[in-house]
Design a binder for these strands. Structure first.
Length: 287
DNA sequence: ACGTTTTCCTGAGCGC
DNA sequence: TGCGCTCAGGAAAACG
């Protein structure tokens, strides 16, 4: 699934391929793809038609593209299986094509393709007059660790103030954004922390180490993923294939830990999985 | 107010 | 061959 590094690759592709282009026509082929649009597909199409795109922005796994009216943005999230493709109009429709944007220049069109429709698009207002304004609906989303304005000390303090467990906190978008199940497990493995470790038991240095490791693993993935964005379309192939070879914990059930050779375990966790080394990442003592 | 659980979706893979 | 079941999981609504 697209994680933060893949979304950043998409952002760069959008910036390259749709900036400065004017929307001629909007087709919503599946209403669920614009379910976040308060008044539905008609409103989505009306707000975008005739607008010219600015340069794509990102926070965590959210993308948005400012419009030339200075206050509206097209907001997008890829969910689990979403793709934003810049395709030649002659290219046959994809099986799960949900939204199509045609441009006045008659060139490549923007397509939102999403099998599971966990992702979606919307057009909405941001605060006028602020060039760095984020869409209103993203106000509660924390900055991500690759954001230069991410506040490390404030994160550590907020993390330690929570009364929950560390992996839940890592996936909490109001605390830190852009960390999904894969990178949460990777950051915990690098930090030798068990996913059920209570946040209140984290020392300041441990919190700092965990953040540094999350940032490192995402930067490493971005460095590898950056090679694919020069293609002719904005591509997310739904598999983080180029980075999967570099994963230390996620998806490695039964395979030896790279530190101590103990087989990696997979545990059911919140209707999904957590991968961890039972020796390096000890279960916290119940209290 | 805050932390936890449920819900949304569909195709691949698997056992029988 | 085909049926039913499980799994993948981001994020917000619903719940306690």
């Amino acid at each position: 699934m697209p994680e933060l590094p893949e979304v950043e690759v998409v952002r760069r592709g959008l910036a390259r391929w749709i900036t400065g282009r004017t929307v001629a026509e909007v087709q919503v082929l599946h209403p669920r793809a614009v379910r976040r649009q308060p008044a539905g597909a008609g409103e989505f199409a009306a707000l975008l038609t005739g607008a010219t795109f600015g340069s794509a922005q990102r926070r965590g796994k959210y993308l948005w593209v400012p419009l030339d009216d200075g206050e509206t943005s097209m907001l997008g999230h890829l969910g689990m299986s979403g793709q934003l493709l810049v395709q030649d109009p002659a290219t046959p429709d994809e099986t799960h094509l949900r939204v199509r944007l045609r441009f006045t220049d008659g060139g490549r069109e923007l397509r939102f393709v999403d099998q599971r429709t966990f992702g979606g698009l919307a057009a909405e207002q941001a605060e006028a007059g602020d060039p760095e304004a984020t869409p209103v609906s993203l106000a509660h989303i924390a900055r991500d660790p690759l954001d230069p304005r991410f506040d490390d000390a404030a994160f550590a303090a907020a993390l330690r103030a929570r009364r929950t467990t560390v992996k839940r906190a890592l996936l909490d978008q109001t605390l830190i954004s852009g960390v999904g199940n894969i990178y949460a497990d990777e950051a915990l493995w690098r930090s030798k922390l068990h996913y059920d470790r209570p946040t209140e038991s984290l020392t300041r240095p441990l919190a700092a180490t965990l953040l540094a490791n999350a940032r490192e693993v995402m930067n490493a993935a971005l460095a590898v993923g950056g090679t694919s964005f020069d293609s002719l379309y904005v591509n997310v192939n739904g598999e983080s294939g180029y980075f999967s070879r570099s994963l230390d914990a996620y998806g490695r059930e039964g395979e030896p830990c790279y530190r101590c050779a103990t087989p990696i375990r997979r545990a059911a966790w919140m209707n999904r999985s957590s991968y961890y080394c039972p020796r390096c990442q000890r279960v916290p003592r119940p209290r």
